[in-house]
């Protein structure tokens, strides 16, 4: 049975009929067609599918699409497009934080959630904030640096 679903996806209303079993991840990727959100494990272990749900970082693979009824969802596509990267995205680019790029959307959203709550995080907070996001390429070292730079860029941008 399909249910009508309507939610705010990156500032636009996304509406469709979905089965109850449809995950938010599947809705985002297949119904809304935004494939930047990645399917890495579907068990909430890797963070590849992380999105912001009403501003909070969540694994979209562990959420029914219907649970997001009427809520606001932000995916990597909502942060900035290739021609207008957000400060967080720019910081990752400048820092050489992206290798294969598969974990990066989740990392960017984890960073965004962190900096929204804690604009000037120390390294321990940064590590904690991305501890639900696995990366197999970078050894995290440059991702941590990128987040430090992102905090600075956001800070500078506001001054």
């Amino acid at each position: 049975m399909k249910h009508p679903l309507s939610l705010n996806l990156n500032g636009d209303m996304a509406e469709n009929l979905v089965e109850a079993r449809t995950s938010l991840l599947t809705f985002i990727r297949e119904s809304a067609g935004l494939t930047g959100t990645k399917r890495g494990c579907e068990e909430g272990e890797c963070g590849g599918c992380a999105v912001l749900l009403d501003g909070r970082l969540v694994d979209s693979c562990l959420i029914l699409a219907l649970e997001a009824q009427g809520k606001t969802v932000t995916t990597v596509e909502g942060l900035g497009d290739p021609h207008h990267l957000s400060p967080v995205q720019s910081a990752f680019a400048e820092s050489g934080a992206s290798q294969c790029g598969f974990c990066i959307p989740g990392m960017l959203l984890a960073t965004t959630a962190l900096l929204d709550r804690e604009p000037d995080p120390d390294e321990a907070s940064i590590r904690e904030a991305i501890s639900g996001n696995l990366c197999r390429c970078t050894g995290y070292t440059r991702i941590v640096k990128a987040i430090q730079l992102a905090a600075k860029l956001k800070h500078d941008g506001q001054n």
Binding site: G36, L85, A93, G96, S98
Partner: peptide, 18 residues
């Protein structure tokens, strides 16, 4: 910086499942 940064950082790189 990597020449593929913009597409990957904006979530627009196309992987096989995409």
């Amino acid at each position: 910086p990597r020449i593929d940064n913009a597409s990957k950082l904006a979530g627009q790189a196309i992987f096989a499942e995409d």
